[in-house]
């Protein structure tokens, strides 16, 4: 009898994975904490180690401040262009039948696959002052792309292109055709239908994709370090500034800028996450 109970206990123990699950869960929490929470903690502590005043002084130094501002505004310009062109691209891909559509659709992911440093090299070869395109743009229009802010925006556009498209595409596919037809029947033009029916449904996905590309662009390093020329106060972005400080063993001046850039990226991503979930819930209710 006792033996039978003991036997049953051992069976239920091997079949009861609770202990294992508990261990698994703890390991995962520890792993994510070490990999993700710890870096955040380190940046926070290093940035504020000498107090708020020192932090403020370190980021308001002209070189540091102009680097932060350059990163923010170039990423912002990119996000706006990207939202417009990304949505247009997604619309064409979802709406129309045309030859080569699958090829175009896979090409969109190129920036996800290609190393950003290689992007920088490619842009240099296309728009550099010695190349035919670069020379043409400079002689005819006085436009310099390389070693200027234009080059930075162009690298960011390359990098950010898939974000909006991949966010908008699935939403667009699910759009209800009957609403558009109703608007049409009621006499709305194609443009009005787009503005009043399609656009409001797409807006959350457009903004989500745009903000994600913005957050991603803020920290971009590989392509920018090659195309921008890294002139302090002019074409040096925050990530390149941090790199220059670390290389020069000036860790303290890297900490403030790191913290600012991280905070902006973090608020943007967490904000997107929160906002998207809320919108989804509202959408479900409707």
């Amino acid at each position: 009898m006792a033996q039978a109970v003991a036997h049953r206990d051992s069976v239920s123990q091997t079949n009861n994975p609770q202990m294992l699950f508990w261990g698994l869960r703890s390991s995962v929490i520890i792993y994510l904490s070490v990999m993700i929470i710890m870096p955040l903690f380190v940046i926070g502590v290093e940035g504020l180690r000498e107090g708020i005043d020192a932090f403020w002084t370190s980021i308001t130094r002209p070189v540091a401040w102009s680097a932060i501002w350059l990163s923010v505004w170039t990423a912002g310009v990119m996000a706006v262009i990207n939202i417009i062109m990304g949505t247009t691209t997604a619309y064409v891909l979802v709406r129309y039948r045309f030859w080569g559509k699958n090829l175009l659709n896979s090409l969109i992911d190129l920036p996800f696959a290609i190393p950003t440093l290689v992007t920088g090299v490619m842009l240099t070869l296309l728009y550099g002052p010695q190349t035919s395109v670069g020379k043409f743009l400079n002689d005819e229009f006085g436009i310099k792309i390389l070693y200027s802010n234009l080059g930075i925006i162009l690298s960011l556009l390359f990098l950010g292109y898939p974000f909006v498209i991949r966010a908008v595409q699935p939403v667009m596919m699910k759009l209800d055709a009957s609403q558009q037809e109703a608007a049409h029947t009621l006499g709305a033009s194609q443009f009005t239908t787009f503005r009043r029916v399609i656009l409001p449904a797409l807006l959350p996905a457009m903004i989500t994709g745009g903000l994600l590309s913005f957050a991603r662009a803020l920290g971009e390093f590989g392509s920018i370090v090659i195309v921008s020329g890294n002139i302090p106060m002019k074409t040096q972005t925050a990530a390149v500034y941090v790199y220059a400080q670390v290389e020069g063993d000036k860790m303290a001046s890297a900490s403030g800028v790191s913290l600012v850039i991280l905070l902006i990226a973090l608020i943007t991503t967490l904000g997107v996450d929160f906002w998207y979930k809320r919108n989804k819930r509202v959408g479900k209710k409707l």
């Binding site: 991603r216 803020l218 390093f221 890297a254 850039i261 991280l262």
Partner: peptide
């Protein structure tokens, strides 16, 4: 979204 350079710095 965190800059690779900043992770290296950490």
């Amino acid at each position: 979204v965190i800059s690779p350079v900043i992770v290296g710095y950490v």
